[in-house]
Each structure stands twice: as C-alpha cells, then as structure tokens.
Amino acid sequence: MRGDLLDYLTVSRARASASTSFPFFIGILISTPPLTSITIIVTWSTLLHYYICQLNNLADLDSDRGNPTRRPTPLTMGVLPLGRVRYWILIELFLLMVFGILPLQSLCAKIGVVALLLTVTYGNVYQKCSPRISPVIIDFLYGFSMGLPILIVGAEFGDLNSQTYWILSLCVGLNFTILNMFAGNMKDLEWDINSGCQTTAIELGVRPLAKKEGIQLTWSYRTLLAVTQIFLSIVTVAAIFPNIHPDSGAIFFLSLLAILATVGGFADILRRIRCKILRPPSGNSSPLAFRLYITRPAHAFLNLASVCAVTGVFSPNPLVSVAILSALIVGTFLLIAIGRRSAVVSLNS
C-alpha cells in the first residue's frame, strides 16, 4: 500500500503538463491575502495538481502504453493497480470539495471552486474522447480552467469589479489554450491517432508524415492557432497600454517587456505555421530534437513571460511578483524532469 502511494505520487509529478499553482499565485500576488490564507491556497492547489495529473494519466493510458517516447511508469506497466488509483482520486476530490468550499466567505468564490473542479474533471477525463463536445471547445475549456483560479482568489480577497482580475484570467486562459493546441496536441500526435483519440489538431486534419519527416498542417488548424495568439496579443497590449509612461520606472519596463514578449510569441507561431509542413529544426533531424521543438516552443515561454510582466504591472510589488512567477515556472519544469526520473527509478526498484 505504501509502495503504491509512492508510485502514485511520483507518476503525478512525472505527468505535470502545467503547474496549477501558477494562476493561483497570480491571484495571490494581485490580492495579497494573509499568510495563513496563502498557505491554504498553495496546499489546496498542490492537491489539485495531483488530482488533475492522475485524471490525465487515466485518460491517456491507452495512448501512453503504445507510445515509445513515454518512459515506463508504474501505471503504464501495470505495477500500480488502476482500482487503487481511482480510489485515491475519489479521496482527493472529496478533500478538494470540503477544504475548497467550507473555508471561503465569498459565494462567488465557492461557485468558482465548484466550476473549477467540474471543468478540470470533465476536461481531463474526456480531453481526447468527449462524446458531445468538440476537441476545440475542450482546449478552450482547459484554458478557462487555468484562468479561473485568478477570479476565485480575486472574489475572496480582492474586488472582481476591477478589470485586473478579468484581464489576467483571460491572458492566462488564452496562454494555456495555445500551449495545449500546439505542444499538447502535437507531442503525442501519432500515438493519439493510433489510439483513436480526438484532439483539436486531429479533428482539423493535422497528420504526421511518413518516415517521421514532419507534421502536415492544415489551413484550418493554422488559422485557429494564429487567431488565438492574435487575440491574446491584442488583449495584452490593450490591457497595459495605458501604463506605458517613461517616468513610471519598473511599470514602464514591464509594460514594454509584456508587449515585446507577446509580439515575439506571435512571430514564433507564424514562423512555425507559415508552411504547410512542420519540420524538425534546420540541420537537425533527430527525433529528440524534433520532440523538444514541439513540446518546448519559444512562443510558450514568451507568452508566459508576457503574463508574468502583465502581473507585475498590476501588482503592488512588480519586480517581486515577476521574480516569484519566474521561479515557479522554472521549478515546474524541474519538477517534471525529477518526477519522470523518479517514476522510472520507482519502477525498476
């Protein structure tokens, strides 16, 4: 039992697609709640992270079993019983409901928590096999769930009449929608197709080329990705444009950074989708290089940098806020790497 629990935790760390703490921290940095409340929020968001990861693991299990790019884990190899994983998931959901709703004073925050749990549950269980909802809507639902924590924290500790929370929620939501449409849809494209999964890319006709020479993109997919990024860039620039005053010091610097980053993100997306075929980086055709090219696109980091800068613009402590969010992003990628390695070690021990 104890060994299974350790396997469960390591696999959760291995499958983190994005830290759910990120939007909660944005809400914290804007609202500045008491230290006790911050501790509760971080603890709750960490439990939510494990809950989401295991839902995602179960949903992608068939695809992962046939995917050689996925390292063997206790779950994919059958070492960790599925019944026990489902049992722990139910316990996590119960704890999330109880400790996510009861301590809150704001009715809007309580409704937000329920909406968040419903969207992440449905979105992760049916992310690639929804019987009624298009994968395109599922990707935007994922973005909505990533932006919702900012509104929850704002409802409890801030003022939702302020446009700040809505702007940041929209920026984060569009950011992660783009991340999932590109990196999330592309990284396992071949195995998703073989497993009968449905993603935005697959529904819009994106297919891998023979001999693994690249990925065939379609006009509809490229248009959707570009339009979403354009909308994100417009929202970002419109939100911070009034703050661009040369005499405002750090705010002026962060405003320029946000604009440059979001424009850079748009330029990177255009560079990748300007042709009908997405190919490996020039001069390097190794599978690993192409996988990193897909899963670690420059626009993902530029969009995240833009969100960090926008948060700094609206935060009472601009530079401190940017430093905290940047450290959280770096820590997330380190956690993913450590989690994958520990999952393999756990399996081999």
Rank of each mutant, 00 (worst) to 15 (best):
I91Y: 11
T199A: 05
I111R: 09
G27V: 04
I52E: 06
N284M: 08
R86D: 02
D192F: 09
I294T: 07
R84Y: 15
M186Y: 01
A18C: 03
Y165C: 02
W191D: 03
L209F: 08
P74L: 06
A250G: 00
P131W: 11
I111A: 13
L48M: 15
M97Q: 05
C129E: 09
D159Y: 01
S12Y: 06
L328T: 13
S162M: 10
N284D: 15
L75Y: 12
L328D: 06
V330F: 14
G264S: 05
I294M: 13
N185P: 02
Y87W: 15
F241C: 06
R341T: 11
T119K: 04
L90H: 10
S145N: 07
G154F: 00
V320I: 12
G83L: 10
T76N: 15
S169M: 07
R272H: 06
L29N: 04
I240Q: 07
I89R: 05
L93N: 09
W88M: 07
L35D: 10
G158H: 06
L217A: 09
G66I: 15
C108K: 14
I202D: 03
P280S: 08
R341S: 12
G123V: 03
G154L: 01
T332V: 02
L319Q: 02
A183E: 05
P33W: 00
C108G: 02
K212Y: 04
I193H: 03
T295M: 12
D7F: 11
C108V: 10
L302D: 09
F301R: 14
P68M: 14
A343H: 08
I40L: 15
I91C: 13
W191P: 00
R65M: 13
D159A: 02
T36L: 10
P81N: 08
N243G: 00
S282I: 10
I269V: 15
A183V: 10
D7P: 00
T311I: 10
I336W: 08
Q229C: 14
L319H: 07
T164S: 11
M146Q: 08
K212I: 01
S285I: 08
V98P: 03
I133S: 01
F144C: 01
A201E: 01
W88P: 01
G83F: 13
G249Y: 05
L58H: 11
T69P: 00
Y51V: 04
R222H: 05
W191I: 02
L256F: 07
I273R: 00
I101S: 07
I251E: 04
L117G: 06
K110C: 08
A327L: 11
M146S: 03
T121F: 03
F333W: 15
